[in-house]
Design a protein around this nucleic acid. Structure first.
Lengths: 139, 139
DNA sequence: TTAGGTGCAAAGGCTTTGCACCCAA
DNA sequence: TTGGGTGCAAAGCCTTTGCACCTAA
């Protein structure tokens, strides 16, 4: 039984990277959260310098710990499938809410499509934009 | 029988926007091209100022003439479905080939999913990365 | 004619970098 | 102990903005 934090530490060690306070702080700020934008992430680790947050995120992306999620004009950061179940998002273009979705059917269709194109998929992104339940009622 | 250029002009006029040389240049730079990043787009309209290209792109996005396509870290710009058939891409991470795909089943699943989440979708992106037929055989 | 659009230059905002100091291993 | 990591400040980039001039309608 290993915690996400332990898994994280293992990944760093397996890649000859130091386990530092700054990196742990950034990782924990991302744990169990909605996807965060850089601004918010930086605010959540007040004891860590902005530059170190950027450096940690860059490292995490290389080690496949974190992924960028493009929502319209900006991007948000979230832990990869290693730490959270594989999923995609519905992003509300009115209130900015990000709604996760995890649908087996979608995954199956993706697989079938790739196969039909003789394509061996290693990753995919599926993002929907529109109006969430609440904003749809209003607008 | 109307050309893409005529459709473009109609959209501008219908929205009380002037048909200017700069806007036509930017539009034509995007016509029939692969998705372009800002840097490339600016380079393709040498007689138009950088700022005007940004302003044109911003306007085009509002009028649903252009959409941003996020490819990894950056974004590219391409004309919307009004000017090119709706499609998604398979991108080979080995040779870089971009294979367009247009699959009704995928669209249907997307619609169903959104509905299940009480979400009113206005747009979506689906991108797969992996190995194309040729590169899959080699690697 | 004139309101909107453009070019230029300068400002903004986010991200990266250089460097001396610090700390994980 | 010591090489990688961090904090700080400054530089870089991409993008946006202010303003005077230009041009489409």
């Amino acid at each position: 039984m290993s915690s996400a934090r332990d898994d994280f530490i293992d990944i760093l060690k397996n890649n000859q990277q130091s386990v530092t306070k700054a990196r742990l702080s950034v990782f924990e700020a991302l744990l169990g959260q909605e996807p965060l934008d850089m601004h918010t992430l930086v605010a959540r680790v007040p004891k860590t310098d902005r530059a170190s947050v950027y450096r940690a995120v860059e490292l995490f992306e290389r080690l496949d710990i974190v992924q960028r999620l493009h929502t319209g004009w900006k991007y948000k950061l979230e832990l990869t499938d290693k730490f959270t179940a594989h999923h995609h998002h519905l992003t509300c273009i009115n209130c900015g809410r990000t709604i996760p979705m995890n649908e087996a059917e979608l995954e199956r269709v993706i697989e079938d499509l790739a196969k039909a194109h003789h394509f061996r998929p290693t990753a995919h992104q599926i993002e929907l934009q529109g109006y969430c339940h609440r904003c749809s009622a209003v607008s």
